[in-house]
Design a protein around this nucleic acid. Sequence first.
RNA 1: CGAGGUGUAGCGCAGUUGGUAGCGCGCUUGGUUUGGGACCAAGAUGCCGCGGGUUCGAAUCCUGUCACCUCGACCA
Length: 478
Amino acid sequence: MADNKKMVEAITSMEEDFAKWYTDIVRKADLADYSSVRGCMIVRPYGCAIWENIHDILDKRFKELGHENVQMPLFIPESLLQKEKDHVEGFAPEVAWVTHGGEEKLTERLCVRPTSETLFCEHYAKIITSYRDLPKLYNQWCSVVRWEKTTRPFLRTCEFWWQEGHTMHETKEEAMEETERMLNVYADFCEQALAIPVTKGRKTVKEQFAGAEATYTIEAMMHDGKALQSGTSHYFGDGFSRAFDITFQGRDNKPAYPHQTSWGMSTRIIGAIIMTHGDDNGLVLPPAIAPIQVVVLPIAQHKPGVLEKAQEITQRLKKVCRVKIDDSDNTAGWKFAEYEMKGVPLRLEMGPRDIEANQCVLVRRDNREKTFVSLDELETKIPELLQAVHDGLYQKALANREARTWVAHTFDELKELAQTKSGFFKTMWCGDEACELKVKEEAGLTSRCMPFEQEQLGDVCPICGKPAKTMIIWGKAY
RNA sequence: CGAGGUGUAGCGCAGUUGGUAGCGCGCUUGGUUUGGGACCAAGAUGCCGCGGGUUCGAAUCCUGUCACCUCGACCA
């Protein structure tokens, strides 16, 4: 049996072709499909369920911190988009334009929102008049469109789903605190819900968001050593406020411009989950966002009592986890492979022999470790094992990041490392964009971030020899 | 946007010097099965990516176009 050709082709191994492995998982785990619209994906129910879980956790957290949800228009009039110079320059090359309504040509083109700063600002100008109106803490869940040239499901699609928070504050300090607070929300979410370790830091001016004064990022490392920007938080100062003429009367009775932030996390994070935890058997999902946390597989289910017992256990477990029973006619082996492909964190096997012994087998997805558990102890054992899977995933991801983090003290060393290794490359940096461009040209690396957790690796910039201002991480990014 | 590659059944693919399309899996029906992708039998499924052209005849040759993949460039 085992010697026969596999009935269903396995996915490409990571080692052989990481990019193909990735798309194999997207398709075979039923996360997403291609559509007839270039660069746009169909998020299938299983992928959608993951996104809904991400949504629910983040949304709850945002609301705890006082944010309110709104829905803005899908379209932005051209004149509105153009109000902030840097912003429009950054986005214009990749916006989609609506030029007609029915057969009639529009007097002004409408762009399909690539992000909604301008819409929020236009609205804020109307509703903010006094310091008593501040802060305004708005968030929107929606999809946006950016006409990307190269697309890959989840990682970069022309349309993607996200949340965008847009807040207005009385003072610079308050806005900067908000920027950092939301970055921390993302970082905690990645580590505690997704089991993805992230590096928090600031983007260089070159990599900063169009129109922002400061952009902060959480950078995650994928299994192949490439970096993925997993969430960003921006501080805008009062640039947009001035451009959109948003003013309020301050406590001192004088007019003032509010200080603004925006922050976002998108469906791209699903790509991060795939590439951080996945293996050659398929997807591996962190329990907190897994649509199915435990799959119950009755073995030899036609034998008397088996199916009934499995259904009874499933009902019971609904109180402690997201559980699904698969009582289809597929063979046990088929089901094992199927739910491994789908990344279900725990599998519960239950056959006639188990039932006789009042036990079942729990198998962890992350390491396939089997545990025999008494049916009376499931309610305590399952949460423990789900936690163990989470911890296992986090530790594995962390170990990969540590193993692929390198330090360079000279430019030659950096170039050498870039040639032979993949991952994060730490160096000191003088802060000049000229050096950043040189690293890109000669080492093929871009700056990922200047981490909040700094290390003193030396006194000079290894690229130009001038005094160093900061430690920076270089890498290749998705 | 540049270089290269691929489009044939739901999926993976074969299809010779042009002659009117096939295999495996999946799917449907019935039966036997079920502790690592089961077996037998009988079925259904094709605008050969799309548009032009050459030809008596095109999946096959020419041409245009669209999509996807890889590597660059670009990108919050």
